[in-house]
Design a protein around this nucleic acid. Sequence first.
DNA 1: ACATGTGAACTGCTTCACAGCG
DNA 2: CGCTGTGAAGCAGTTCACATGT
Lengths: 208, 208
Amino acid sequence: MKHIAESTVRRLSLYLLFLEEFEERGLDTISSTELAARGGTTPTQVRKDLSFFGSFGKRGLGYPVAELASRIREILGIEREWRVVIIGAGKIGLALAQYRGFSQRGFQVRAVYDSDPAKIGTRSDGFEIRALDSLTSDAREEPVDIAVLAVPASAVQRVADLVVDAGVRAILNFAPHQLKVPPHVAVKTVNMAMELEGLSFVLTNHDD
Amino acid sequence: MKHIAESTVRRLSLYLLFLEEFEERGLDTISSTELAARGGTTPTQVRKDLSFFGSFGKRGLGYPVAELASRIREILGIEREWRVVIIGAGKIGLALAQYRGFSQRGFQVRAVYDSDPAKIGTRSDGFEIRALDSLTSDAREEPVDIAVLAVPASAVQRVADLVVDAGVRAILNFAPHQLKVPPHVAVKTVNMAMELEGLSFVLTNHDD
DNA sequence: ACATGTGAACTGCTTCACAGCG
DNA sequence: CGCTGTGAAGCAGTTCACATGT
């Protein structure tokens, strides 16, 4: 397949969100104009994004809502279930473990790991907290697709190395630290302070 | 000032992170090459990013670490303190309220709000949970700079409207919903499921 | 000699304009 | 005629190449 821009993939996620809304409202056809209005983009952009993957619309009519939603799920690879583990049983890790948005999209949180002996073995929201040391052997029995890292910045590179050794090929990192991983591993970092800094920049350079 | 790309601002945040690391290690000069290596970008990109705001380096030498860090803090507008409120005292909201990364960068969490009568008035991690209804009058006494929304997607637009009415000019939204706000209000949305979908896309279209 | 700072070239995402089809 | 699908044009962000300063 031709190379797809990350911005395109992000917009596909958004389109899916809107399509699910429209589906609930019982609409069965939608135009690129309506999709664009809902997401703050342009009709042309919507059509171009979709055109990379095929022709899903009917000229003069629009797109079939349910069908397009299902095609986007396929494209994103979320018609299947992904096995996810959370590393770090702190406030943020546990909040992510019980976050409904994940399971709704086929991301199954299978386990929460921590290295603090005081936490290991305890239960929280139906999740038993396992020893980080057991991750590698656990993953041999049931492979892990995605690891979500919610550990301190000072520990996260070490944890990432461990997770990569355990065979995980995708990492969602919540620590404010840029990870170094082998090229076959995909990483996304969500840096919440950085997002606030972006807002601070806009507020400071207020030229509206 | 000339228009600055969002990608440039994000990289400035990263540079600051690295500069603080270097500062701790006692280095007082750093080259664009070293900064780039740490952040997965190129030396030219680093120099171009900085050049939008002035000339901070010494030719033949590099950049003075402490001084550059302080200049970037100024540029981002984080030499001052920003007043932040969290809306939504669920797991995610409370995790964000106590998140150290915020206060370390000058983002002061002043209050946590919720609309659930069972939660209002209780304390959690040193934060008294206030009634969402009181936000507008509270904000009159002490203006709020940034609101972090950690409420369900179904409620978030209503909450955003309320927050905008209360005079808040920047919103960090954690609900999977695209907000509509007046043009003078800045919004960033962190959609955690969308990040996982990006990883799913890469895993599915594995061409490494 | 070495590393910054920057106009110019380039790359790639977005927007335009319109052909194609229901 | 309406809306999709797409090659071509436009534009923004990145990279190159080198002049400049220490």
